[in-house]
Nucleic acid binder design. Structure first.
Lengths: 214, 214
DNA sequence: GTCTATATACCGATAGAC
DNA sequence: GTCTATCGGTATATAGAC
C-alpha cells in the first residue's frame, strides 16, 4: 500500500489492453495503429511490445477477456432453468450482460463477422462455437419438448438472439452520426437490457408453439 | 460492334468500381489498398485516379450503386400493398434482393455499422435514413390499424428485419472459418431468401396482435 | 489516355543505450 | 524496466514523359 494514484496501481499490461480494446473497436484490426494504442495507454511503444507483445497478441488478449466472461455466463444461463423459453431468454441476457460489462465487445464482433473471422485466434473461434452450440442445445430441447415449433432453425434463432443485441449495441453510434448529418432518425427511448428484453419477447412469441403459454 | 471480348467492352470505371467493391468488402475502408483495387481491375494506379478519383470517391461510387437500387425496391415494396404485414415482408424482401444482386452490400454495411458510419458519405447516410423511415411508416401504420401490437418499436423492428438478413448474408464466411479451425458448427440448410422468409415469419408472428390472422 | 517514377508520410517492430 | 532512434516496408497520391 502506498499513496500512489489509482492510475499508477493499475498494472501496465491492463492499461495497454484497455487502450487496445478501444482502438481495435474504433478502427478494426487492420485499421488499428499500435502507436495509437501506446499513446492512449500512456506508455512508450517499446514498452508495449515488452509487456504484451505484437499486434496479434494485443488483439488476442482483448478477446480472451470477452470470451472467458461470456463462457461463464453461458454456463450459468444453461444451468439456471429447465424451461426452454426461460433458458433462451437467459442466453440472450448472458450475452447482453457481457456486452454491457464490455461495451466494445459487440463492436469488435461486428467487425469480425464482416471479416469472416479472419483475424480471430483459435480461442475466440472456439468461444463462438460454444455459444452457437448452447443456442442449438436450447432450441433442440425446446422443439423436442413441444414448446417451440418443430421447424425452428437453431442457427437462425442464434442469429436473431445475438444479432438483435449486437445491432442494438452498435446502433447508437450510427444514429448519432445520422443526426450529425441532418438525417431524421427514429427515437431510441430505451437502453440495451430493455432492447434485449423486447427482442426476446418477439423471438419467443415467434417461435413458440400454439397453445403453449408462459 | 467488334470482336473484342466481353471484358474489354466493360467501361474502365465500371471495372474499377467492381474491384473496389470486392476490396472494400474484404478489408474495410481503412484496410482497403488502392494498389490492390487497381491490380484487380487490371488498370494502372494512375489510371484509377484519372477515371474515378481517390479512395473516398471509390467508396462513394460503390455505395451509390447499392442505395440507388435499394431506394427503388423500397418504393415498390411500400406501394405494392396496403396490408402492414405484407408491406413489412416486402420491405425485408426488397433488402434481401438488393443483397443478392450485390453480395458485398451487407458485408460493407456491417463494417459501417461497426464504424458508426464514420466513412459514409452524406448520400449513403440519407439512404439509410430513408430505409429506417420506411420501416417506421409501415410499423406505425400497422399499429394504428391494430394489426401490430400497440407497443411495437419501429426501430427495433427495423433492426430485426435488416439485422437478420445482414447477419445471415455474412454468416457463411464465418461458418467456413469455424469449420477450417475444426470448430463444430450447426448446419446451414437454406439460402438467403429462405432465411429472410423464416426470419420474417418469426418477426411477424412476434409483433402481430392476438386475434389477427393472415 | 497511359505509364513510370517518385514525393511524402506512416506503420510495425526492434536495436541498443541507460 | 524504460526510452530514443531508426530500419525496412508500405501507403496514398501525383508529377511529368509520351
Amino acid at each position: 500500500m502506498n499513496d500512489s494514484t489509482h492510475e499508477s496501481t493499475v498494472p501496465t499490461a491492463v492499461r495497454i489492453l484497455a487502450a487496445a480494446e478501444e482502438v481495435f473497436a474504433e478502427s478494426g484490426y487492420a485499421g488499428a495503429r499500435v502507436d495509437e494504442i501506446a499513446r492512449r495507454a500512456g506508455v512508450n511503444k517499446a514498452m508495449l511490445y515488452y509487456h504484451v507483445g505484437d499486434k496479434a497478441a494485443l488483439y488476442g488478449g482483448v478477446l480472451r477477456t470477452y470470451f472467458q466472461l461470456l463462457a461463464g455466463k453461458l454456463a450459468d444461463a444453461l444451468a439456471g432453468s429447465e424451461d426452454p423459453r426461460e433458458r433462451l431468454r437467459r442466453l440472450q441476457v448472458a450475452f447482453a450482460d457481457t456486452a454491457i460489462v464490455h461495451p466494445h465487445f459487440p463492436q469488435i464482433m461486428l467487425r469480425e463477422i464482416a471479416a469472416g473471422g479472419a483475424n480471430l485466434p483459435l480461442e475466440a473461434l472456439q468461444g463462438m462455437g460454444r455459444f452457437m452450440s448452447a443456442t442449438r442445445e436450447v432450441v433442440e430441447d425446446g422443439c423436442a419438448r413441444g414448446v417451440f415449433r418443430a421447424d425452428v432453425e437453431p442457427l437462425l434463432t442464434h442469429v436473431m438472439v445475438v444479432g438483435s443485441v449486437v445491432f442494438a449495441a452498435n446502433g447508437l453510434r450510427l444514429l448519432t452520426r445520422l443526426a450529425e448529418a441532418g438525417v431524421a432518425t427514429p427515437e431510441v427511448p430505451y437502453d440495451l437490457p430493455e432492447i434485449a428484453r423486447l427482442a426476446n419477447d418477439i423471438i419467443l412469441n415467434g417461435i413458440t408453439s400454439e397453445g403453449v403459454t408462459s
